[in-house]
Design a binder for these strands. Structure first.
Length: 421
RNA sequence: GGAGACGUGGCUGAGUGGUCGAAAGCGCCUCACUGCUAACGAGGUAGGGUGUAAAAGCCCUCGAGGGUUCGAAUCCCUCCGUCUCCGCCA
């Protein structure tokens, strides 16, 4: 959500932003609706003022005749007012729907492009492993060491269902612990957050109304969130924060659920694309300045890069092009880790900032030094998403004898150096 | 699941039909006082919208949404949430 005044004053910017994001949106139409809204609002407010004045007069002692006359006048006024209010209500409805469609403006550094094909590589880090043998896929490795069971996964859970077993399960937990410990050391607050969330929360974070298709919904009208970002962001919704406490940094763990409605036929085998997974997410709320947003955007990105490097995983960072940005996102980096069996980098992390797009919807504010209420800025990045990242860990660390070398930082969590020895 | 109570500003808490966006206290800000700090004293202090050069003014908001009324924090209905007791279950 953007400020309507800002939209009116910067309609070219908005229109240009929508074009860059390849989002179909007509600013002029919104402004027309807003004109109607303002005109009706003025009319209704004037009538209400009239009504308030007259009511005060009636409250005083009056001649019975005068009183009767005023009561009659009120009856007429109320009828007029009802009509105008009804009209205002319907215009407001249209206005709100339109306001929910307004895309946030992408940063100048965001490249042009329609889809992830046009994302721009900004750096490549780590050495891709060189194998003296044909490397196995994570599926083969997991079967070999009894780390997962996909057949029983779909028997029990359906398409894309899986069980993790033995060191597969333990490796996943080791990752959670390693990433959580590291982030807590960097000053992030450890949280375990709800996945079951209400509608408003998803509107607030920008996952609704556009993302309905990809969300599981309960018979009570609640939803299963696709990321811990949702509950973490809503944690302070409707609140006024103390400026001194900013930035607030969270490391939020939660189960995540995605219907993958638009991804039929994609990555149908293995752990890459599943309906149910776990994620540790970084969320930051900071002061309302672009510089602060950028600073923490770089920070949450670096946090992950440092840890991937510690784990010895080769990765690259791409800057997402306009067409690959969500409605509320200003800029996004994806971090993609090397998958030897596919000879590709695959997305494991996604870092984006929103300025006040989310906090305006969620109504999260603070008082600045001038005493003015401001919406905080919000941003987030994956810390670690499992089981997806297991793919790269298993494949990159496989040995000629079929064993898997556990990355050094995880050894203490696993209590061993190799899987399969 | 059943019964009852409650939901007011940054916080505590008064307010059951009229000039109440709201007493009082706490907190916070300004001034005065003091060698400095604290206490005491004086004043100020909700948010949003509209409007404007800026203001003033006007409108809305007492959990949310409806309704009754000339007029609602106050009465009625629905929903959400919190608390207490009972039941059920860990």
């Amino acid at each position: 959500m953007l400020d309507i005044k800002f939209i009116r004053e910067n309609k070219e910017l908005i229109q240009e932003g929508a074009r860059k994001k390849h989002i179909n949106f007509d600013v002029e139409k919104l402004i027309e609706t807003d004109d109607k809204r303002l005109k009706l609002l003025k009319a209704v407010e004037d009538m209400r003022a009239e009504q308030n004045r007259t009511s005060l007069m009636i409250g005083n002692n009056l001649e019975p005749a005068q009183r009767t006359q005023l009561l009659n006048e009120m009856k007429i006024l109320k009828e007029d007012m009802k009509n105008q209010e009804d009209e205002l209500k319907s215009v407001m409805h249209e206005w709100q729907l339109s306001m929910l469609q307004v895309p946030n403006i992408p940063d100048i550094s965001v490249p042009e492009g329609e889809s992830d094909e046009q994302n721009m590589e900004v750096r490549v880090v780590g050495e891709k492993p060189v194998f003296s043998f044909t490397p196995k896929s994570h599926l083969e490795l997991m079967e070999m060491h009894d780390l997962a069971d996909f057949e029983r996964g779909s028997k029990v859970s359906g398409f894309r269902g899986y069980f993790l077993k033995n060191d597969g399960a333990r490796l996943e937990m080791a990752l959670w612990n390693y990433f959580m410990d590291s982030l807590v050391q960097k000053g992030y607050r450890a949280m375990i957050v709800p996945s079951l969330v209400n509608r408003e929360t998803l509107f607030g974070t920008g996952y609704l109304p556009q993302g309905e298709e990809d969300l599981y919904k309960t018979q009570d009208g609640d939803y299963l969130a696709g990321t811990g970002e949702v509950a973490t962001m809503a944690y302070y919704s409707g609140e006024v924060l103390e400026k001194e406490k900013l930035p607030l940094k969270f490391a939020s763990f939660s189960p995540c659920f995605r219907r993958e409605a638009g991804a039929h036929g994609k990555d149908v085998k293995g752990l890459y694309r599943v309906h149910e997974f776990f994620k540790l997410e970084q969320v930051v709320l900071c002061e309302a300045s672009h510089e602060e947003s950028v600073k923490y955007h770089e920070e949450v990105t670096k946090n992950v890069e440092d840890l991937l490097t510690e784990l010895g995983l080769p990765y690259h960072v791409v800057i997402n092009c306009g067409g690959d940005l969500g409605l509320g996102q200003v800029k996004k980096y994806d971090i993609e880790v090397w998958v030897p069996s596919q000879e590709k980098y695959r997305e494991t992390h996604s870092a984006s900032y929103f300025h006040d797009f989310q906090t305006r919807r969620l109504n999260i504010r603070y008082k600045d030094t001038e005493g003015k209420m401001r919406y905080v800025h919000s941003l987030n990045n994956t810390a670690v998403a499992t089981p997806r990242i297991l793919i790269s860990i298993l494949e990159n660390n496989q040995q000629a004898d079929g064993t898997i070398k556990i990355p050094a930082p995880l050894v203490k969590y696993m209590g061993k150096e190799y899987i399969g020895k």
